[in-house]
Design a binder for these strands. Structure first.
Lengths: 330, 330
DNA sequence: TTGTACGCGTTATCAC
DNA sequence: GTGATAACGCGTACAA
């Protein structure tokens, strides 16, 4: 690949002139400018971002550390992050952690070494103190996690979303409601569990129970099986995410239990699948794409020192009512 | 952040010694090594990959140019690419093109500037000549596309996969078979269309028709609606991908047509959704994760000049039979 | 076994 | 307006 020197030689000027021409910084005569441009074109010159980064200390890239891009909720976020980044001239480095704390740390260090200008950290479970220590001042925006110590984040209120979901099950007449929870160490799962509890406790005459899941299909399936075969099966199930809600449907099919007739079901996330399964799943919309987009926007604002920028953004969870909670005669 | 100079000063040695210690290149006395290590630790030193890249001309990153990470098939590929890359010390830059040729070009140039060591290009529709010209020698591996001019690629034979799918529909007794095709400018879609045609033409007494889709839900839905409301509706439908197959199910539900009783359905890709919808969809497995993984592995082999490495890999498509083609009395 | 000096491609600060 | 020149942080001949 051609360097700035090659261009300078061909255009018969010094490298500094070429640099000025490229960056529109400082003076450069019209005819000289044209000559430089022609040379650039002829050599198919592309400025070297690495060398640029070294001197300017700006690499034009940000790190995206995410549990798993293959997970539909996260891949929406990833897309949002990249869209906003590229629109502002930034490039995104993708890192998958599988929620593994070691990998998360490894990636943070790696990103430091690569001189990313900032990080969007999605769905992290690392304690914020540790994070802050690790970061060493590197700008970061948390996504899908409500911050305590850290100042910038985009999240939606899982507690409220879960409350809405549970409330809706009560509205359609459920008295015995089960929650299939997410992993214990997940802040989102914890918040949803709390929202569920609050809804249950606010309403007299409604009974709640919690079955442990893991946000994955298998965990949801096992939990649903246990619930359905218990002495006193629930009339409504609130699954902590759509993936597990889909599993509930499969378990119900297996046992000949019909949804929503025999049991009503609510999920969480609104992954596209939830709309297309049968019955379609009533769920709490998370707007992953927007979350990613906002996180990215926020990080860029941070980088460009626009201190007027808001540092946190809470997205409203909204309930989407579909077939899985339809009442016969409504 | 601390630099190599800081470490050198603290350890009372020269920068070159520190460099040698870090990279285990050249001689360095045991006690000196320990001193350097201690200094590194104390300063929380992290080698600067940018500076390193400048001198070594190796950035340790590869570009992943992909139509859309939010699309489940591609997000699987992305995950595979990243897994293999990070396992070998490489980092992945994510680029979404939405199949837009301009964006693809833009990203290729951007990646050149960033000095990525190579590119995994997924599902591209740019003519290979143009690509080769654009690349200017930058190593590349095509994924999900059979190469002509370019030497390295990972793909699965879509023609064969489509043939299998169509054959299966005939096996379960369909005589009038419709294919909902993908976009005309997609090589995969074209290959699938050809496989469909071949299967139909090889069998006397079987009638085929093609409806235009676009690989998206909406296109599949519209096409299915047209097929179902035509004078002579099909007995079997082969949708060019699972997303459109899901749409076919929705359209059928809407019209009170039952699958597989009234019409049998086969999809393509085996995205996770296809297993969880009702009825579950018979489909052709693509193994996106493996494809990504292989593509990455191949690119790295290329970069490391392991010329013994195979340059192309064709993955066998396999048929997964599920409910959507179940015969009543089988 | 260790240190000096140069270069990687670019930008910024100066003289001219 | 333009051109040397010194950084940026690191790897590596080469000399010591």
């Amino acid at each position: 690949m051609a360097t700035i020197k090659d261009v300078a030689r061909l255009a018969n000027v010094s490298v500094s002139t070429v640099s000025r021409a490229i960056n529109h910084s400082g003076y450069v005569a019209k005819d000289v400018y044209d000559r430089v441009l022609a040379a650039m074109r002829e050599l198919n010159y592309q400025p070297n971002a690495v060398a640029r980064g070294l001197v300017s200390r700006k690499t034009g890239s940000i790190g995206l550390i995410i549990p798993d891009v293959a997970n539909p909720f996260f891949s929406d976020i990833a897309r949002g992050v990249e869209d906003e980044a590229i629109a502002n001239g930034y490039t995104v480095i993708l890192c998958n952690t599988d929620w593994n704390l070691q990998r998360e740390q490894m990636y943070v260090r790696l990103m430091q070494g690569k001189w990313v200008e900032g990080i969007v950290l999605v769905g992290s479970r690392t304690p914020e103190q540790e994070l802050a220590a690790l970061l060493n001042g590197l700008p970061i925006v948390l996504a899908d996690r409500k911050p305590n110590l850290l100042k910038s984040a985009v999240w939606s209120d899982n507690e409220v979303g879960a409350y809405l979901a549970t409330q809706h099950l009560m509205d359609v007449g459920c008295r015995k409601i089960a929650h299939i929870a997410g992993p214990e160490d997940s802040p989102s799962a914890t918040a949803r569990r709390m929202g569920f509890r609050r809804a249950i406790e606010e309403q007299v005459g409604v009974y709640g129970t919690i079955a442990q899941g893991n946000f994955r299909f298998d965990g949801g399936y096992d939990a649903a099986m246990k619930l359905f075969t218990a002495d006193d099966p629930p009339e409504g199930i609130f699954a902590a995410n759509d993936m597990m809600a889909v599993a509930v449907i499969q378990a119900a099919n297996r046992l000949g239990i019909r949804i929503p007739r025999d049991v009503r079901l609510v999920g969480y996330d609104n992954i596209s699948m939830s709309e297309y399964v049968y019955p379609s799943i009533t769920t709490v919309e998370q707007r992953g794409y927007d979350m990613g987009r906002e996180a990215s926007k926020l990080l860029l604002a941070l980088l460009e020192q626009r201190m007027d920028a808001v540092l946190t953004k809470e997205l409203e969870p909204t309930l989407l009512i579909r077939q899985s909670t339809q009442t016969e005669n409504a």
